[in-house]
Computed example of a mutant assay.
Amino acid sequence: MLSRAAESLFWLGRYMERAEATARMISMGQRMAMLPGTQGQSEWTSLMQATGTPPPEERAITEADIVALLILDPESPSAVQGCLSKARENGRAVRTALTQEMWESLNEDWRYLESMDTQTARRQLVQILEWVRNKAAIFRGAVETSMLRTEGYFFLRLGSNIERADMTLRLLNVKYFLLLPETEVVGGGRDHHQWMSMLHAVSGLRAYHHNYAGDYAPWNIADFLLLNQAFPRSVAFSYGQIDGCLAKLEKNYGGAHNCQRTARAELNRLSRLDIHAVFSDGLHEFINDQIAKTARISKEVSDAYHF
């Protein structure tokens, strides 16, 4: 496969995953902003910080800012509309590598957000976020049920899982930024509902309950999102998928690369970690370190396959 085709498939996977993850993060921020005793500002500020989007200067961040900057901005690689546009551009660049079902899922309603202004999008925010999640699910279903398991598939899935690991880490950072101004002890009522909002955001409430039988302690939820190797949106599970995709690419192309060694080492490290040690050493520090390592794997993939 040509390196430019591999690059397009890799970033197609990343942008579709990012669009969905951003929608999920906004849903979580919306839930947190509605909690008793909140004014919404810190929730939206934390969301901007976690996505790395520059906030408006010298004024409080509002829901309207979130809609404009994280949903409707067509140029931003962090905004839903920008992600979907870039995903379609990458898909068009490798049209012959996509199945008809994949191409149709990319093209269906792709101009849906273009005609919306901020006020309209705010009124329809719940429906828009649901539409994004559904669009990503349809694309993912088309990939899984119609694409040959050749190198193109593994580059696409590699991009998706690198992005998923990164966005789960950033979602946890939303919680960290919210804790900065808090005076309430960890485990209080508001703290509990914020952690619960995270499980809703990743569609993990029932799976979590199956594992922990209703014990919603913060360290258990962090353990579930970081170290659980059976939950599809956990960091450890995503690293397992990354390692598997790189192993398939090694088999097809021959020769191991730094990205594979880095991913395997991180997967092994995550399997040995204890969440209480992570909290003791600093959850925020761990998350930032893991975001940096995920970015390193992405860079090493680009270097290994020349894109």
Rank of each mutant, 00 (worst) to 15 (best):
E266L: 14
E89Y: 12
N258F: 10
E300S: 06
S197L: 06
S203W: 11
D109Q: 06
G13Q: 00
F155R: 04
E101F: 04
L72P: 12
A295W: 08
E266M: 14
Q49K: 13
S298V: 01
L225H: 04
D117M: 00
M147E: 07
T51E: 00
E266V: 14
P218T: 05
F154Q: 03
K293H: 09
A292W: 15
V174Q: 05
S42Y: 02
R122H: 03
K175F: 06
D117N: 01
A292V: 15
R272N: 05
I275K: 01
Q39P: 03
V143P: 13
A79C: 12
R59I: 15
D303Y: 10
L84G: 06
A87V: 06
A222D: 11
W219R: 11
G37P: 10
N288C: 02
G37K: 07
F10C: 11
N268H: 12
A87W: 03
L270F: 00
F154L: 04
L12V: 15
A256W: 12
R269E: 08
N220E: 14
T145C: 02
Q229P: 13
M102L: 00
V94P: 12
F10T: 12
S105A: 08
A87H: 01
G204Y: 09
T120H: 09
D274P: 12
S42G: 00
T38S: 07
Q194R: 03
I275H: 03
E104H: 10
E108G: 07
Q260I: 08
Q30L: 05
R264V: 03
T183E: 14
R18N: 02
A142C: 10
S271N: 15
I287E: 12
Q30A: 08
R264P: 02
Y15E: 09
V143Q: 08
E151D: 09
L113D: 06
I71A: 04
S85T: 05
C83Q: 05
G187P: 02
S280V: 07
I162G: 03
S203V: 07
I71W: 01
A217M: 08
D65K: 05
R24E: 03
P218D: 10
T150Y: 11
W195R: 00
R264K: 06
R164N: 04
S280K: 13
A207S: 13
T22C: 00
R140F: 04
P232G: 00
Y153H: 15
S46M: 05
I26N: 04
L225E: 06
A79L: 10
R269P: 13
L35W: 00
Q124Y: 07
F139Y: 12
A68I: 02
Y153F: 15
N107V: 05
E285T: 03
E300N: 01
A263S: 05
A295E: 07
D243R: 15
G141I: 08
N134G: 15
N268W: 14
R190D: 14
L227D: 15
L158I: 11
A222Q: 00
S197N: 06
S234V: 13
